[in-house]
Nucleic acid binder design. Structure first.
Lengths: 236, 236
DNA sequence: TAACTTGTGTTAGAACTTCTAACAGCAGTA
DNA sequence: TACTGCTGTTAGAAGTTCTAACACAAGTTA
């Protein structure tokens, strides 16, 4: 009725502020994101931005939220585009889109998976977006031939099932959930070291290493290794 | 001759400052590490600490340096203690010590592997310490039966060999280097997500997942999977 | 049309931060 | 005794986040 225009201007102001914040993030890291500096670049004074964000933390939280949604959109699009392909190729499609997103904007990847902001608690919709990424991955893993429930489920199996249930994906067998989780940690392991610059001085191309691990996922989802993996050793 | 006592006091002052800095790091994250606050807790004024550290960045760099050395000491000790055991058990010894160090002081692990400090360049002795950790891992991997050089080495193989040569470990076969690197990224993948709190809301015990991946390393170092892995696919 | 409400900007200022400059004093040395 | 060097101090500049008080324009209502 009333403020439809004002509401739009308001939204545009927030978007512009966050755009500049991302520039600062990329250039100077998280400590370089300054409310004052953003305002200056926008041509207003510092306190003006407090009409749009409760404070610096609030702004940062929105950056985190946006990044989760953006990542989920990216991998979902790649997975959707791979519809009809064989599982190995769909896994590759997921993996490549995941890596593309990460190395294309390393500072945002670090915002999600790097050192957490102290006291940060992800709001519900952010958690949902994170789930979307994981669900996209699980959806390309082969489900056939996986027992829905093991005869003697391990502790980890139980946790995996509970986790899936809490996300409304009750039907996924624990073996698939485990493959998904392990696969994700493997891809993240390489990406994390890459975006934090650990490979730089080593002279090793992280893309090659990533691809090797990505292929290991294809095996993990379709090989002998995984079949007994929850029972391999230790107090599982 | 002269300042042996003064030098000692000076060193103790630095140690105390860094100890308090680590407390702040653990409690409030990296942004909470404040030169002024450290000085206050030590009973001196802020500028006094600038006699001991060139600035806040210098202090943080020392924390990073200390952490790398500490981590290397920890895994080296565990590897040394496992001397004589079978390779799988030595790999487990490495993995468990690595995880213990990380989860015992997650803020320090994040200092090494989380979001990097902008503009940070690791000095030589820090790089050496990082190498020590990797070397400890490589030393527990089985070397027997691995070809020193493949007939047609891949790009990644060549990079791995160059990397090993630059670290003065020329004799290690590329297959072992690859196993080491892949293994490390896998362990880090789980640890990274654990210390950044990603498993918390999922209700999954990262220790169990870590153990599963650790067992995959044992296979990786002694199974069929790795033998052709550098040639699996893509532009290697 | 006049008055009121709401949103958005301003300046002033408190309470922090890092870091430099200038100065004071103490310890050990020549 | 005088000198040198180290270590502390206070003062202050230039930042930061964030609140409070005020100004003003736009839209709504009487």
């Amino acid at each position: 009725m009333v403020n439809v225009r004002r509401e739009r201007f308001r939204e545009e102001t927030k978007v512009e502020a966050k755009r500049i914040a991302l520039e600062q993030l990329a250039e100077q890291g998280i400590a370089g994101v300054s409310v004052n500096a953003i305002a200056k670049r926008m041509g207003v004074t510092g306190p003006a931005l407090y009409r749009y964000f409760k404070g610096r933390d609030d702004l940062l939280n929105e950056l985190v939220r946006d990044a989760w949604h953006d990542l989920a959109d990216a991998v979902e699009a790649a997975v959707a585009a791979s519809e009809g392909a064989e599982p190995p190729d769909r896994v590759r499609a997921f993996g490549e889109s995941f890596r593309s997103w990460a190395v294309g904007q390393p500072h945002r990847y670090l915002l999600l998976f790097g050192t957490p902001l102290p006291g940060y608690q992800a709001p519900d919709d952010t958690i949902m977006a994170a789930h979307r990424t994981m669900s996209a991955f699980l959806s390309v893993l082969p489900h056939e031939g996986r027992a829905g429930a093991t005869a003697e489920p391990s502790t980890l199996d139980a946790q995996l099932v509970a986790w899936a249930n809490s996300r409304g994906e009750g039907g996924v067998p624990p073996a698939v959930l485990l493959t998904g989780l392990r696969g994700f940690t493997r891809l993240h392991g390489v990406l994390s070291l890459e975006v934090s610059g650990q490979f730089g001085p080593m002279g090793i191309d992280p893309a090659l290493l990533y691809r090797v691990e990505l292929e290991s996922l294809v095996l993990l989802g379709d090989s002998e290794e995984v079949r007994g993996s929850t029972r391999l050793s230790g107090p599982g």
